[in-house]
Design a binder for these strands. Structure first.
Lengths: 344, 344
DNA sequence: TTTTAATCCGCAATCGATTGCCGGCATTTA
DNA sequence: TAAATGCCGGCAATCGATTGCGGATTAAAA
């Protein structure tokens, strides 16, 4: 029962004593075949349990109907949601997904890209790894004639299709909200500044301080505090300052914010009355901590769908020879919860 | 710059005035080529930015070095972790992953399987959707000579490779722990019984009650309470009984347990003193609710690695013509937290 | 010096599906 | 009736890489 050779169009052609080309045409519903023979072929194909060999088909047609996706980690909420979104939209169009993780390493990222190029994917969707420094591997994708779409963590200087969040605006709104709640000394936990998203969030933070005429205090800005542990560590440092902050904006992630919350609780500091906390990403748990954590929702599933549809749209009007770089910016939403509400 | 034809082995062969077969052999590091020419070929290949066309290669070799994975939802913690595990192990072996979501629908599951068969994947890894009733589509995979590996939610009657959790034992231990904490009336929130995992967890529950000579009370067993909302609804019903339970085992998921906790909190019922709660899956948030939730860890990433390695191992000794069905059972771990601890 | 073996390389078939082109037959139009 | 058109089917090349086989050259053994 095992591993008999699969039935091919030649098997069908042989059985019906016709040419393979006719079988192929029938299977592709070409109107170049008589309706009766087409039916007969389809029937025979079903009987013989024929499955098209997509490899052969793609090789001949020079396309693979496959989209390659590279993310730092598959099992992080934001990314798995984006992937789910991409998958949903792609499935409807008959496209498949090949997923790779870069593990936040440019080294592996390069390998993933090469694999995907070898696989002749039609499109590569990527969110950069944290230590991504130069972008020759991305240029390589383009040079190989593969559509490249960057999302979330993008290389600004590369003119490709992009789907991003308006991080600066979201960050600005979050910090403005914090200020309006009466907090005066607002600390920032920032992420690796080689990633544009973290630079933008910092800019938003600075702009908000500026708008409300609050001083920028370098002591309250902590670099690379983007995990729960680093967030906790940074918080310990901040709260032990002679003049500690009265709010902490964990611009990097909700995990970082969780670290802040845990340290504050352990130190007996009351949230939000004595310390305001705001995270980023709207992870599921932010709703159920006590107090619940104010955060920013990035519409991750929608983002994934947008990425996929952007590709399909580009395909549709590929009569244009040149690719016009296009950027779709999604406005994230501030989710105000208990951890920053001390008015009202 | 765009969409020039890619360089092929023929381009390399042409430039060096040798046969394509030699180029192929050099690229595959065959020792059938002179060391000097091999070097020259490799150098030229790099210069011309050659990328192997994996489609052609796979077509010729009759294998795709690709594993297809089908899960209900990509963006659920357990599944995304399993996928991350599979990806990690596969990547090391040079295998690619094609990911599909069944959306808990057998209908889509069938389509996914057909897609993967068409793609000529070497192996299909699947965790069944909840409404999966018959298993002809799985049989179809086997009939097409594709290795099938089931994990977590498996069809017992199908003799394939399987990687599962010992749900019955885990459930037994969880309920035993609850009983040992002095709870007497333990409710069970159970999942759809057509899935074997939920049947097994129920069995474990029943066995534990039996062992400790506790009565089985039908009123305390609620069917299909496997989301947060359904868990909450079930809890409202249970706690309004004339004789309400003093503990609830949400055997379906931690989300369900979270629903229980929220309703209990809203009703002013103290956890764990008045009500014990135990979930299943060790979702990240169970650690940070107050009180933290006792749950069962399924070692999901490890499970993914195990699945992948099981496949590679089978490949290695495929000299055996017949496939020996093999089941790997991973023993989950009870994580005891505050929500069930009222002794000590 | 001759035989044997080893090493390298090329030819050509192959994997399975697709598609441009040609030709036979039937139908329609002049 | 002859010419033009349309429909349907087959032939054969093609996509790019792999591989069995045979031949040529060189090195090693007798």
């Amino acid at each position: 029962m095992k591993n008999k050779k699969r039935t091919t169009i030649y098997d069908i052609a042989g059985k019906l004593n016709i040419a393979a080309s006719s079988v192929s045409r029938a299977l592709n519903n070409s109107n170049h075949v008589n309706e009766a023979t087409k039916k007969l072929i389809l029937k025979t194909a079903a009987e013989l349990n024929y499955k098209r060999n997509t490899l052969a088909s793609n090789l001949r047609k020079g396309q693979s109907k496959t989209i390659g996706v590279i993310v730092p980690f598959i099992n992080q909420n934001f990314f798995s949601n984006v992937i789910a979104g991409i998958e949903e939209a792609s499935y409807q169009k008959g496209y498949n997904l090949i997923i790779c993780q870069s593990n936040e390493s440019q080294n592996k990222e390069v390998k993933c890209i090469n694999t995907l190029i070898n696989q002749h994917v039609d499109c590569i969707v990527i969110s950069l790894s944290v230590d991504s420094s130069d972008h020759r591997h991305l240029q390589n994708v383009i040079d190989n004639g593969i559509q490249l779409i960057q999302f979330d963590r993008v290389a600004d200087e590369l003119a490709t299709l992009k789907v991003i969040n308006d991080n600066e605006q979201a960050s600005f709104e979050a910090v403005s909200h914090i200020i309006e709640q009466g907090y005066k000394r607002i600390a920032l936990l920032e992420g690796p500044q080689n990633l544009n998203i973290f630079r933008q969030r910092k800019t938003g933070y600075l702009n908000a301080l500026k708008k409300y005429n609050l001083p920028i205090l370098d002591a309250l800005i902590i670099e690379n505090a983007w995990t729960k542990e680093l967030g906790a560590k940074a918080t310990r440092k901040l709260l032990n300052l002679a003049e500690p902050p009265d709010a902490i904006f964990a611009s990097t992630s909700d995990f970082s914010a969780l670290g802040v919350l845990e340290v504050a609780s352990a130190m007996g500091i009351k949230v939000p009355s004595e310390l305001g906390i705001c995270g980023y990403s709207n992870e599921a748990f932010t709703e159920i901590t006590s107090p619940s954590i104010t955060t920013v929702d990035q519409f991750s599933i929608y983002m994934g769908k947008t990425v996929a549809n952007l590709y399909f749209q580009e395909m549709d009007n590929k009569d244009e020879t040149e690719i016009i770089p296009k950027i779709i910016s999604i406005k994230p939403k501030l989710i105000i919860r208990s951890s920053t509400q001390r008015n009202g």
